[in-house]
Design a protein around this nucleic acid. Structure first.
Lengths: 218, 218
DNA sequence: TAACTTAGTGTACTTACAACACTAACCGTG
DNA sequence: CACGGTTAGTGTTGTAAGTACACTAAGTTA
């Protein structure tokens, strides 16, 4: 690395892909842009990294500002920095993705946003509506989430503390976009030893009530 | 994202973890720092991202400058940006890792470097000799490489075009730091259908010559 | 109390992974 | 020129993980 003094410095931001499950679909939080460029299009929430703030902190702060949640799953995804990705100047953006139970969140629209809402990720309605390179960021986040859910236990992050195995299975089906075998799924999940069976069931309809489980946090 | 105008902007660099296999060990290219801070310590090669240059391009350019190679495996790793990771100011660094056959490279020391050399990654000699947070970056790169080699075919990137299966097996053993069963290894590799058997063998000693293979590039 | 709906359970088959030992071919030396 | 040394090359068997698949359990409502 040479001397620091006179290099032109780009802007550095964090962008957040905040996922939740609602209405039987995987949803992502998007903000309608109130200004040019891309006025009227939808963008991922994000903002500048403060000069004395770690990247993870910046992402956590934006998360707090946008949806009012703290202490949820949040992981760095990839850094996007093509010149020209933002017509206003050179902006390098470190993308993060987060998982939250929809019930925990309260959406707060930022000052420069016309509107903010959850958008179903796999709904074709979303096509062509995304600003900047946010389609690419979203696609990458979905890819990572799909991989991660197959090898780890992140699925639990999308559910409330107490949940049924059918609910958890549905989370997997929604994310992977394919049916999952009930018996194999239960065998696999129980075999991981990561969830605790509760002495509690939930009745929600004209059928056998389901046992509740909770995730063993490490 | 709010208005761009007056945000303080950090420096943005790329740092490279360039791996090769030499002398029966996994090696990483390090540069001895000629100036403070960390004068005399060893650092990963890297440099500023130019204002009109994509991140991948910046990494490829540094690679070309440091070891004179182009068109090799190069992948973004992670972005490190803790305030205080560089005492000279706020520097956010996008780390990349690269794999190359040692024979292809010519090390070129940069102007502000006292020296540049390959260092065996698993040699304890390296401990405490790394500048900045480069120990952390290197550890993460090794972790990624280990994962990647188990699920993909990146191993070939560390060998010349023609290689024997024993050489390839040795690459795996060196990276994973554990012995690999010869028959299972060959079964797995051949089963992947990613390498072509050549009508050529190589004799290098008082023993049966080994058949050469080459990687089928996609 | 019968019909409906979701919860919950086990077994057989297939596929991937792990362990393991001998023969083949070349070189160098006595 | 044959024998010893060295690395290349090859199959089978057991084990673990994953996949396919169908019926009973327990509650609600008409």
């Amino acid at each position: 690395m040479s001397e620091h003094s006179d290099y032109p410095r780009p802007f550095v931001t964090v962008d957040l892909v905040i996922f939740t499950i609602a209405e039987d679909a995987l949803q992502v939080l998007l903000i309608e842009r109130g200004n040019e460029p891309f006025k009227g299009k939808w963008a991922l929430p994000g903002g500048f990294v403060e000069i004395d703030e770690a990247l993870d902190e910046a992402a956590a702060r934006e998360l707090q500002e946008e949806v009012g949640v703290t202490n949820i799953f949040l992981e760095q995804l990839y850094t996007f920095g093509d010149p020209g990705r933002d017509p206003r100047g050179r902006v390098i953006s470190i993308a993060y993705y987060a998982l939250t139970d929809a019930m925990r969140t309260r959406i707060v629209a930022a000052s420069d946003a016309a509107d903010a809402r959850w958008y179903p990720v796999f709904d074709p309605e979303i096509d062509g509506q995304l600003a900047f390179d946010h389609r690419q960021i979203l696609d990458y986040a979905v890819w990572r989430l799909r991989n991660k859910i197959e090898w780890t236990t992140v699925g639990y992050e999308l559910l409330p503390v107490k949940f049924t195995l059918s609910e958890l299975q549905r989370v997997y089906e929604i994310i992977l976009q394919r049916p999952v075998d009930k018996r194999n799924f239960r065998k696999k999940i129980l075999g991981q030893g990561q969830i605790r069976e509760l002495n509690e069931t939930r009745s929600d309809g004209a059928h056998r009530p389901a046992r509740l489980y909770s995730f063993k946090k490490p």
